[in-house]
Design a protein around this nucleic acid. Structure first.
Lengths: 149, 149
DNA sequence: CTCCTTTATATAGCAAGCTATGTTTATTTA
DNA sequence: TAAATAAACATAGCTTGCTATATAAAGGAG
């Protein structure tokens, strides 16, 4: 009668989900005043690095599905963070540019993300942080490989 | 001009989000054939341990908001996993019972979750797993404390 | 006993994920 | 070159999460 062998707080999946939600909530608190949302962050990072990209390029960079990105970009356009210009070589393609407002937010937004990471890793040594990030990268790789198979 | 100091693959928050999505996707693949969804798992675990609980009890157990649980329970009812009986002492309360179908799925569903965790942690030693889970619990605690403040 | 407050649950409305499918333009092939 | 295929992006429809608010029943204050 050894019931409840599966305890949620000993399940990597459960902890990962809970942790990710807390990261998102914390980031949201910090960037909402800037008019940004957590889901926009990955696209912003890629565009801050270099804008005038296509949606396809972003999809390749961002570990999310094309449909998810299309919707996120629509919200970003609505919120005045990006503008799209049709490509002249290919009628299917639009180039995505940051607005001045989005460019101006880079520093503050990045600080917010750094600061959220710091809070989460409060009390971790440098070595522990490295190990933790490495563990997560290993788990991600393992699940991605399983996915293809 | 040291651009791009903030690399997504070095951000704990980014990795946490990505990892959690892969866990959910993998679990979904495994339990969809059983007619279950990942978001139903926490409630099922709590009810397999003891059913006839109230929604409030579940909320206290499950690290999610009351509104989120209310919606999840509605889907579980729709899918024939739970049934609700009005409490006789308190007209606001409903007791939540698993259906026979849901009870019968415990073993297979638990195995699916265990198996997904195994895939994610493939190549981890026992010590590394313990460390990893501990890191996640520490990050969760740190963010929860920050939340209250 | 009636009014006010609290408690339990539900609903509205949104974001960010996903899969599956549509639409439009380019490209390839017969 | 016309028809078929592929590629880029959009849309539909769903789940799971959130905050904020509504509703209904219970309990407490006067």
């Amino acid at each position: 009668m050894q019931e409840m062998t599966f305890e949620k707080d000993s399940s990597a999946g459960y902890l990962a989900n809970h942790m990710a939600r807390l990261f998102a909530a914390g980031l949201q608190r910090r960037i909402k005043p800037l008019g940004l949302a957590p889901g926009q962050f990955p696209a912003l990072l890629a565009l801050w690095a270099k804008d005038g990209r296509t949606q396809k390029e972003l999809v390749q960079l961002l570990d999310i599905e094309q449909a998810t990105l299309a919707n996120t970009l629509a919200r970003m356009e609505r919120d005045g963070l990006i503008a799209r210009k049709p490509s002249e070589e290919d009628g299917r393609v639009q180039l995505i540019y940051l607005t001045e407002r989005a460019k101006a937010l880079q520093s503050e937004a990045t600080q917010a993300a750094v600061s959220q990471n710091k809070v989460a890793l409060d009390g971790f040594s440098e070595d522990e942080i490295d190990q933790f990030l490495d563990f997560m990268r290993r788990a991600i790789s393992a699940m991605q490989i399983e996915d293809q198979a």
